[in-house]
Amino acid sequence: MDNLTESEQRLIETIQGGLPLVARPYAAVGEQIGLTEAEVIASLAHLIQIGVIKRLGIVVRHRQLGYRANAMVVWDVPDAQVTAIGQQLGQFDGVSLCYRRARHLPEWPYNLYCMIHGKDRNAVLRDLDKLIAIYNLSHIPHQVLFSRRCFKQSGACYTFRSVTICLPQRAAGGG
């Protein structure tokens, strides 16, 4: 875990729910937390540069744009191969997230997870077939867990002190 300065923590708490949609958003954020516009910009540039902020931009809600099918595909990959296969899956065009996770034995042997989004189930399953063929994964046990309902989807909400100040972004349901 990175050591963040107190002002970086304040900045993260303030912007995690989104920047204000005003002409000078960084100045507006600075005003809330006692930093100048230039300090906010420099601090954000630093957090991006060191990789704490993965990206800064428009966060799209895929479901609302018709990308309604979302499958979490879980694989049980031998430990010696998981990094190599994970790196391949992570580069595949239709895969939007790819993680190695701890197995939860005995009931859940899966250690590699990827997320595939598509306009409908068939599009997702076609992508999965393509992926299995390209990387020769037909011998790797896997399961496909389509999402049925989205109850909540928002950015991570970090609270460094006692007060939680991120705005909840509830899903609109359905899908």
Binding site: I12, V52, V60, G155
Partner: peptide, 26 residues
């Protein structure tokens, strides 16, 4: 700005802001 406000109002965008790398903060 107007377009972003509309897209946000209709929940097509969640926010304009940061996406954090998991496990770097907490």
């Amino acid at each position: 700005l107007e377009t972003l406000q509309e897209l946000q109002k209709h929940q097509i965008i969640g926010r304009v802001g940061p996406v954090f790398q998991p496990h770097r903060i907490g």
